[in-house]
């Protein structure tokens, strides 16, 4: 099918983000895509950092001094939020695709996101206070 979207000819990836409607399903789709890209970037950063482990204590232990600072923990909060949003929203996609909760995908999404917020709050509390 031939597309006619002259406004998006140059930046085709903008078609991923249809901001016209802020309905829940659309929001879920955009959130899923943003977190997906973020998590893949994180995955490879993580694997690269783990290379330090291969160099033994002299490579790894200086790194964990940085990793234990509050500023670094802030990045962990972002990671945790991304994982929760992506994972639980993905659960909605998988469940509806297997025929569960199709007619109640909106409440399902809201419930999962509330759950995500609770887990995030608990996680942040544990990270900084625990």
């Amino acid at each position: 099918m031939n597309l006619y979207r002259p406004e998006l000819k140059r930046f085709r990836f903008l078609r991923w983000f249809d901001f016209r409607s802020w309905r829940l399903g659309m929001l879920a789709y955009i959130l899923n895509r943003v977190t997906a890209i973020g998590l893949v970037v994180y995955l490879y950063l993580h694997l690269a950092v783990l290379f330090l482990l291969a160099q033994g204590p002299s490579g790894w232990d200086p790194f964990i001094q940085i990793a234990r600072t509050p500023w670094f923990l802030m990045l962990d909060v972002i990671l945790l939020a991304g994982l929760l949003i992506h994972g639980l929203n993905g659960l909605r996609v998988a469940l509806t695709g297997f025929g569960y909760g199709v007619r109640s995908q909106k409440p399902l999404f809201i419930a999962l996101m509330i759950f995500a917020a609770i887990v995030l709050a608990v996680g942040v509390f544990k990270m900084f206070m625990g």
Binding site: D18, S21, R23, L24, G25, M26, A28, Y29, N32, R33, R92, V93, T96, G97, Q105
Partner: peptide, 9 residues
């Protein structure tokens, strides 16, 4: 389909 549910809406 990316489950955005826009069609139904």
């Amino acid at each position: 389909c990316h489950s955005a549910w826009e069609c139904t809406e």
